[in-house]
């Protein structure tokens, strides 16, 4: 499998504080990688390092096999990037900005750009300073997708977009993936990540704490079990791996990690009238990761 992004012990320190600490990460060709973490976890720091805007304190990052800092300009021929807060020149019009960005990048699918302008319902005939945040974001997205770059890097790209436009964004990411493009997506919108991403990386305080497919992450996490009984629910507090027990009248809810056999035996003996077991959502996984003390899994 072709590796598009590879970081080895990538570290960025500001003074004595590590904004990113020994990040080891690979992103493969055609993959959509979700990059999660709360504010200040080091997501944007990672992206700025990948783009060569900042220099690593230690370790390295390569994109397409080339050093991300030293060969930034060459790498950027095959990259398109959309930041969360797009800084565009206020005196230019939308059309001028799209033209300028296309010229700077050097390659553009003009027909696709026109199609994107329509899809995103964007009016390019206004000055950038008059656009709302969402519309400025649309310019950046249209410019990025229209390059059909091998690697798309998004840093919270849908902030400011309405749900309809966010859906169009997701469709375009899926189309890009189908087209063989690689996507690095940093986002706070977990549904978006859940829908789009093949693998998910979770950062906390500059460290990578989880990396894998959603199913792999779930494997290490608790399963939620809910059951209703005709009588009083059985006691499950002594069962290994059970946590977060909630009991209301005839209703029982708890989480379980590891083997579920003993819990099933106890519940079935108590004659349940309903039983539900479900995998945790990404949101539940994310919250669970952040509830555990630093460094623990």
């Amino acid at each position: 499998m072709t590796v598009i992004i590879e970081t080895k012990k990538l570290t960025k320190k500001y003074g004595s504080k590590a904004a990113l600490d020994s990040l080891d990460l690979t992103v493969n060709k055609g993959e959509v990688l979700g990059y999660l973490g709360p504010n200040g976890a080091g997501k944007t720091t990672t992206i700025r390092l990948l783009l060569g805007l900042t220099h690593p304190s230690d370790g390295s990052a390569t994109i397409f096999g080339e050093d991300a800092t030293r060969h930034a300009a060459d790498i950027h021929k095959r990259i398109a990037y959309v930041p969360g807060e797009t800084n565009l020149w206020p005196s230019l019009s939308g059309a001028e900005t799209l033209k300028f960005l296309a010229n700077l990048h050097g390659s553009i699918d003009e027909a696709y750009q026109k199609e994107l302008i329509k899809k995103f319902d964007f009016d390019p005939n206004k000055k950038v300073r008059t656009y709302s945040k969402g519309n400025r974001q649309k310019i950046a997205l249209i410019a990025a997708f229209a390059t059909r770059a091998d690697l798309l890097i998004f840093d919270e790209p849908t902030s400011g977009l309405d749900p309809v436009m966010a859906k169009i964004f997701r469709d375009e990411v899926l189309a890009a993936k189908k087209n063989g493009q690689t996507v690095f997506l940093s986002s706070h919108i977990l549904e978006e990540v859940e829908e789009l991403c093949d693998r998910i990386a979770v950062l906390r305080a500059g460290k990578l704490v989880e990396l894998g497919t959603l199913d792999e992450l779930r494997h290490f996490s608790a399963v939620t079990v809910e059951a209703t009984f005709t009588g009083k629910p059985p006691s499950v507090s002594g069962i290994k791996g059970v946590s977060n027990i909630e009991i209301h009248d005839h209703f029982l809810r708890c989480n379980i990690t590891g083997s579920i056999d003993e819990l099933l035996t106890v519940i079935s003996k108590a004659k349940p009238v309903s039983f539900l077991s479900r995998k945790p959502s990404l949101e539940e996984l994310f919250l669970a990761i952040y509830k555990t003390p630093s460094g623990e899994k």
């Binding site: 805007l53 950027h76 800084n87 960005l101």
Partner: peptide, 15 residues
């Protein structure tokens, strides 16, 4: 400072 340079330097342009 305003971030316009970011927009330029993420393109294939040598600093």
């Amino acid at each position: 400072a305003k971030g316009y340079l970011d927009t330029i330097l993420v393109q294939p342009i040598h600093r």
